[in-house]
Structures are given as C-alpha cells and as structure tokens.
Amino acid sequence: MNPVSPFLELDQTPRVEVVFDGTPLSLPAGANLAAALLAAGIGEFRRTPVSGAPRAPFCMMGACFDCLVEIDGVVRQACMLDVREGLSISKPKGGSHATP
C-alpha cells in the first residue's frame, strides 16, 4: 500500500514495477525517479551519515545530493535518473556520500 502522497499527479503515464527498500511500487515509466518516488509517497530517501537525520529531494536539479539512493551497489542522485522497469532502489548503506 502506498502512503498518501503530498503531491497530486496531473499526468497519466503507463506504469512499471520497481522496488524501493523492499516495497514494490508502480511508477510512471520514463519519469524522473525522484519525482516519481515523491508522488508514490516516499518521504525519506536516505539518512545522513553524520546524525542519521532523514532526507528527501531538496533541489531537483542535481545540486544538493539530498536525493541519493543506491541502485546496483552505486549511490546516485535520484533526481538525475529516469524510472525503468525493475529498478531495485534502496537507501544508501553506511552513510550516503556518493561513491568517490
């Protein structure tokens, strides 16, 4: 069950299945990944390495790095990725600095 999203979606787009932190989600194919996760009600993308505080997208333009998620073992900015069928996304483990 998706939690209630703080966002209203204006577009109707065919959906594909992805997994976020073990939960299956149907997201609009080809959509911006960070936006799609927000629309699906995902309120926390990661925890900070310093204090463990929750974070979610802040800038949506690749500048703040608050939207970092882990995909195939690589920590990446969700706002710079598109939704693809079968993505397995998780919160970055062991802090969430992008891989140097």
């Binding site: 966002f7 577009d11 629309a39 997208p57």
Partner: peptide, 15 residues
C-alpha cells in the same frame, strides 16, 4: 525551483 521543476517536468503539484 524544485517545486517548479516538479510541476514542469513531472506534472506534480503539492497538495
């Protein structure tokens, strides 16, 4: 700006 980007690119409006 992020709000604008969400609306433009993704058609999302904050409730």
């Amino acid at each position: 700006g992020a709000g604008q980007i969400l609306l433009k690119q993704s058609g999302l409006v904050a409730r």
